[in-house]
């Protein structure tokens, strides 16, 4: 690698200009063909995305036709009586995601700060690898573990919290009617929190790392403690990055299927009782699709379409925020 050892006056040349400066020899057909092949592979992403929308929408049409807009937005999901209202499921999805973010975001920010600001240099990489290992554990294994080990102790906690707060105005309703088995919105939220922590941590860590040393040193030189330095230099610098990390975590939480399907208790309903059983759009597809036919099946595919649209919108917002943050921080478009 002789080029590496040559002295370079400008280590990061503008990629476009440097390529244009060194135009390859006149293209022959193989060059052309290869370019077209790679372009086709790139376009495949657009084709697949478009096909997903078209295919699920065409199958979901029967649901929209049979139910009409008003009953789709009702919360009455009752396959036995041919009612397929999706609102309770949308609510369940958002509630579980909200609970998950409530646990996962502070934890992730804490881990990211530990890795970037607190930990000695040599333990940083092992910690990062360990947290990434959490992302490698399959969803279904988390579900199995939660079913066997987590729901029983949680149900005791739910019972005691519920009886302690009964009669208290707001908390009383929130914690009322705990599920006897421990399968609940809360249980699903906790497990989803564990599953989205690695990705939220990874993105948060990336933006915290880019905080300029000069700013941190300036804060410390002014006499700031480490925490004051973090609040005054690292947080303002990484704010939009954290926002997009939260959005990406939200998108993952919305789509989390298998673990939720195992531990949420499978009862689609609109309720404020977070210790009670519930259901989400993704989990009901996993649990009911095998038995479904006709309008029921069409409704489940329609839920998939809603899920797709929801995650795509969340993804677009997250990526836009992240791209803007990168531009502000002087990082070239990812």
């Amino acid at each position: 690698m002789t080029t590496e050892t040559l002295a370079r006056p400008n280590p990061t040349p503008d990629p476009e200009r440097s390529l244009r400066g060194a135009t390859p020899p006149p293209g022959r057909t193989s060059d052309r063909v290869f370019q077209v092949v790679t372009l086709a592979a790139g376009l495949l992403v657009l084709v697949v995305l478009a096909l997903i929308v078209v295919a699920t929408a065409s199958q979901a049409r029967a649901w929209f036709n049979a139910e009409g807009l008003s009953s789709i937005f009702s919360s009455n999901w009752d396959p036995a009586h041919h009612h397929f209202g999706a609102f309770g499921l949308l609510y369940g999805t958002l509630l579980v995601s909200f609970i998950a973010l409530l646990f996962a975001v502070p934890t992730s920010v804490g881990i990211a700060l530990f890795v970037t600001e607190v930990a000695p240099r040599r333990v940083r990489r092992p910690i990062v690898y360990t947290i990434d290992l959490l992302a490698a554990v399959p969803s279904v294994v988390f579900g199995l573990w939660a079913l066997a080990e987590l729901i029983a102790p949680l149900s005791h906690i739910y019972q005691s919290v519920s009886s302690a707060t009964s009669g208290v105005p707001l908390l009383g309703t929130l914690f009322a009617n705990p599920s006897g088995s421990g399968e609940a919105f809360m249980t699903a939220g906790i497990v989803v929190a564990i599953m989205i922590t690695p990705i939220v941590t990874a993105i948060t860590r990336e933006v915290f790392v880019t905080c300029p040393a000069s700013q941190k040193e300036a804060a410390l030189a002014l006499g700031a403690t480490r925490w004051e330095m973090i609040r005054g230099a690292v947080f303002p610098h990484g704010r939009s990055g954290v926002v997009s990390a939260v959005m990406i975590g939200f998108g993952r939480a919305v789509g989390e299927t298998i673990a939720v399907a195992l531990i949420i208790g499978s009862s689609p309903r609109l309720t404020a009782n977070i210790f009670g059983t519930g259901d989400t759009m993704a989990s009901i597809i996993a649990n009911e699709f095998g038995d479904a036919s006709g309008t029921w099946r069409s409704a489940l595919i329609g839920l998939g379409l809603v899920l797709l649209v929801l995650t795509v919108i969340i993804g677009i917002i997250a990526r836009t925020v992240l791209a803007r943050a990168d531009r502000r921080l002087g990082i070239v478009a990812r």
Binding site: L46, I52, R252, L307, I316
Partner: peptide
């Protein structure tokens, strides 16, 4: 840039949606 952006967005599409998609087509 469009392909890059949408492939990033596509990494966030839930896996169950991929299952439904292949089921349908």
């Amino acid at each position: 840039r469009v392909i890059r952006f949408l492939s990033e967005v596509m990494t966030g599409v839930p896996s169950i949606v991929m299952g439904l998609f292949i089921y349908v087509v």
